[in-house]
Simulated assay, not measured.
Amino acid sequence: MNIIIAAGTGFLGKNLEQYFTEKGHQVHILTRNPKRENETYWDAKTLGAWKDLLENADVLINLTGKSVDCRYNAENKKEIYFSRIDSTKVLQQAVDQCISKPELWLNASSATIYIHSENRLNTEENGIIGDDFSMNICKSWEKEFFRVNNEKVRKAALRTSIVLGNNGGAFPKLKMVTKLGLGGKQGPGTQKVSWIHIDDFCRAVEFIIDNKNISGKVNVTAPEPLSNVDFMSKLRKEMKIPFGLNAPVWQLKIASVFLKTETELLLKSRNVYPEKLIQSGFEFMFPDVGSAFQDLV
């Protein structure tokens, strides 16, 4: 296959590139800072020479978007919004101009689109979508993505949760915190953590590519979300760290200012189930967090 990954130099993009390259596929990256032969410059806002790469491509994967691991001030909020909307919009323009369009377009989204929920399991079919900054970003992003419907281009929005891997993302930070003895519960500890192992994330993307019946919104999460207190407890156990100090909400609020992040990333309850993947026959290598930690630690 010929696969194009927009903004493919981050944690997810690097792992997808390695995964598909090892399987013999051709992967090309769109990036603001091209350094290798298979990388092409784009600014994620305007059409350029990069659009020719989409001609005859099999799969387009868009991972563009400013990281939400920042303070939600006016400037950052604006960048979080426009980095997602502008890139999706310009990719649509490029796809529209293709004579031979990509068969499949996968666009990043987030499991954060669902409301804070400790008891209700959110599936694609019955998940409740709420109204706050993060959820509205996701709604606007998906609305822009699905705005144009072309029967030749199958589209899927990847509602991804925390992806666990050793070479990026949140997991190295969680391990460091745990090693320092700070790996207790965060806030109340009852908030649910939806997660997925990086290997299963790559396999799920491949599964969606191979299964032409899958389209629309897809929850890309492991089937067993668990409470924050259990998540941290299992991580401590696997790392053989005997104790972990708890972090109350007031402490997290102070720390988040110094770390230039937001407490929502730790305190929001993401209780998400991958119904579409499961019903389509996808089998997780790491269905429970214990097996994921065993592999990664």
Rank of each mutant, 00 (worst) to 15 (best):
Y114D: 04
T64F: 01
T112K: 07
E79D: 14
C70K: 01
E79G: 05
R84D: 02
R71Q: 12
L106F: 08
R71A: 08
A94P: 00
Y114Q: 05
N107H: 09
Y114C: 05
A108K: 01
Y72F: 15
Q93R: 08
I80T: 05
A111K: 10
Q93Y: 08
Q97Y: 11
I115H: 07
R84H: 10
S109A: 15
K101C: 09
L106R: 02
K66Y: 10
P102E: 02
S87T: 08
G65Q: 01
A108I: 14
K77M: 11
T64S: 15
S110D: 06
Q92F: 08
D96G: 07
V95E: 01
S110F: 04
I115D: 09
S67F: 05
W105R: 04
Q97T: 14
P102V: 04
D86C: 03
A94I: 01
A111T: 08
E79H: 09
Q97L: 15
E103T: 08
Y81I: 15
C70W: 00
S87E: 03
S83Q: 07
I113N: 06
S109P: 07
D96S: 13
L106P: 01
D96W: 05
R71G: 02
Y72L: 13
V95H: 02
I85E: 05
K78C: 11
I99W: 11
V90I: 15
V90Q: 00
K78G: 06
L106M: 08
